[in-house]
Amino acid sequence: MSIQHFRVALIPFFAAFCLPVFAHPETLVKVKDAEDQLGARVGYIELDLNSGKILESFRPEERFPMMSTFKVLLCGAVLSRVDAGQEQLGRRIHYSQNDLVEYSPVTEKHLTDGMTVRELCSAAITMSDNTAANLLLTTIGGPKELTAFLHNMGDHVTRLDRWEPELNEAIPNDERDTTMPAAMATTLRKLLTGELLTLASRQQLIDWMEADKVAGPLLRSALPAGWFIADKSGAGERGSRGIIAALGPDGKPSRIVVIYTTGSQATMDERNRQIAEIGASLIKHW
């Protein structure tokens, strides 16, 4: 067993022997301040990774656009098919120029040779490549099948209805392509620590998230040296922004954090800054 596999296998073990965790309302004060600064709703939840206990939450059962955070769930569904012998990570998928959609920095470079399922998941999570996500959605049967996968996990809230990039439209009061912070946090925890996926697939999923290259201005910008984070960000229309993450000190994750916002007129930089400040408060009061 590799060191990384050992780390993920012992996530519940280490967490069980940690000192009790206590909620700190100071972080919620910052979440509410972010709402004021952005002029928009902000949803927040913080779960203990081992027990699933909610440590703090704000608007945990209000719907927010998922945006690209759905790509972690998508690759979880792909990995479940791999575990069941219905898919192979090494299978190569070929596609054409007509398949390319807006923001496809990886797939646009491989029109000639195609990409493997493993490479597509890596591109979808680490670079948020939209064509990679659409190609992977095709392998599982489309958005409705991802929703069905989530329902089978016990998540009857999260739903995907459309493809990239239309799913980022974020129309107010439109339930399409949305989740709730509580539902997303619980589902992410199941994917990373539950028995739904094999140990190898859980490790692969967290490795992809740990290698995320496009979430630097968010929670990662607030992390002290030595902290662990595996995350996936999302951005959408109407001032929408979000991030889902597993993080913790001492090089291992111990909490799940989900943050979503929508309806702001603020710039992307300002949305990023507010999420980073929430992260800084979380870490300060850990």
Rank of each mutant, 00 (worst) to 15 (best):
M1R: 01
H5R: 08
F6I: 10
R7H: 13
V8C: 13
V8N: 15
F13S: 09
L19K: 15
A23P: 08
H24D: 13
P25L: 10
E26R: 08
T27L: 08
K30P: 02
K32G: 09
E35T: 03
D36N: 13
A40W: 06
R41N: 10
V42Y: 06
G43F: 00
Y44L: 11
D48T: 05
D48A: 08
S51R: 07
K53C: 08
F58E: 05
R59H: 08
E62L: 07
E62T: 12
E62N: 07
R63A: 07
R63W: 04
R63K: 09
F64K: 01
F64T: 01
F70H: 08
V72T: 09
L73M: 11
L74D: 00
G76F: 05
G76H: 02
G76M: 05
A77D: 09
R81E: 07
D83C: 04
D83Y: 02
A84P: 03
E87Q: 08
E87H: 04
R91E: 06
R92E: 08
H94C: 09
D99N: 10
D99A: 10
L100S: 04
V106L: 14
H110K: 13
H110C: 08
M115A: 06
V117P: 04
S122K: 13
S122H: 12
S128G: 02
N134G: 03
N134M: 04
L135G: 02
L136N: 01
G142W: 01
E145W: 09
T147L: 07
H151K: 14
H151R: 15
N152C: 11
M153V: 14
R159T: 10
R159N: 07
E164K: 01
E169S: 15
A170F: 11
A170M: 07
I171K: 14
P172Q: 12
D174N: 06
D174V: 04
R176W: 07
R176P: 04
T178G: 03
T179Y: 00
A183R: 09
A183S: 11
M184E: 01
A185Q: 00
T187N: 11
T187F: 06
T187C: 09
L188P: 00
K190P: 03
L197F: 06
A200P: 13
S201T: 08
R202Q: 15
Q204W: 06
L205G: 00
I206P: 01
K213S: 10
L218E: 02
R220F: 03
S221P: 09
P224Q: 06
A225G: 13
W227T: 02
W227P: 00
F228A: 09
A230Y: 03
D231V: 04
S233F: 01
A235R: 02
G236P: 00
E237P: 14
R238T: 09
R241I: 03
G242R: 00
A245N: 01
A245F: 03
A246Y: 11
G248P: 00
D250L: 12
D250M: 12
P253R: 08
S254Q: 15
R255G: 02
T262E: 09
T262H: 14
G263M: 06
A266K: 13
I275S: 01
H285T: 15
W286V: 02
